[in-house]
């Protein structure tokens, strides 16, 4: 179940989707850096809409509709050269965890059946599962955590999310997986991957707890049509 992302002030006039919003672009490294402007707190300038109170039959009060205060659009950068969209990092992590957690849970369920119902029949290697688990725990969870930590420290501009780190994590996973599959059996590769996938639950927990503890919200900023041009993680109040 995904967590709905809250809207943040937008520059773009087109209505954003439910989990996304538009923010001014990040200044590029080659351009002269503008004075750091605090990232906008998406909801802070906008008063929360007053919920409509349903009239109760016992108390017959005339329904007073408060005028909705429109949230002023706030530019985070002096230089408004492009259109960035902001996506809630938590929602991305949550959606990204659906497939690996499904894969891991079904795999563990299968393993559970064979191990406990047919112990003499089916053997598994706990060390291989732990290896996958440790790799996932150390790489994915720590990557998530340190990204947020850096974004928190560099709250104004956020931190650039580098694909190279992802590739650097993925290569050892792929190497171990293929080595196991080719030289030790596909079953071991499967056991390794199930340990890896089940760690997809930790980034969710890390993001949730880190947001709660730091009272910040983390957003991924990217240009919609050119996501590879620059992607950064920003922390907002």
């Amino acid at each position: 179940m995904s967590t709905p992302e809250k809207k943040v002030p937008v520059v773009k006039q087109t209505p954003p989707s439910s989990d996304e919003t538009v923010a001014p672009p990040e200044p590029t490294a080659t351009e002269p850096q503008p004075a750091p402007v605090p990232a906008p707190a998406p909801e802070s300038p906008t008063p929360a809409p007053v919920p409509a109170v349903a009239p109760t039959p016992s108390v017959a009060k005339p329904k007073v509709k408060k005028p909705k205060v429109k949230k002023p659009k706030v530019a985070v950068s002096k230089k408004d050269t492009g259109k960035f969209k902001q996506y809630r990092y938590r929602t991305r992590i949550l959606k990204g965890a659906i497939l690996p957690i499904l894969y891991g849970v079904v795999s563990f369920q299968m393993l559970n059946l064979y191990v406990y119902e047919f112990p003499e029949y089916y053997k598994y290697n706990i060390m291989i599962i732990l290896l996958g688990f440790l790799l996932g725990l150390i790489s994915i969870s720590s990557l998530t955590f340190f990204n947020m930590l850096r974004a928190k420290k560099n709250r104004g501009n956020g931190v650039k999310l580098n694909s190279v780190i992802g590739v650097a994590i993925y290569i050892p996973f792929l190497l171990i997986l293929l080595t196991l599959a080719l030289f030790y059996g596909l079953a071991l590769a499967w056991q390794f991957s199930m340990g890896f996938f089940i760690t997809a639950i930790f980034p969710i927990l890390i993001v949730i707890f880190y947001e709660l503890s730091s009272k910040l919200k983390f957003f991924v900023e990217e240009i919609p049509d050119q996501p590879s041009e620059g992607r950064r993680l920003v922390a907002v109040q």
Binding site: G96, G136, G166, F173, R231
Partner: peptide, 13 residues
């Protein structure tokens, strides 16, 4: 696994 890693670095799943 690719998707899982890419999401961790902020990409869309």
């Amino acid at each position: 696994a690719i998707d899982m890693v890419m999401v961790a670095i902020g990409k869309r799943s």
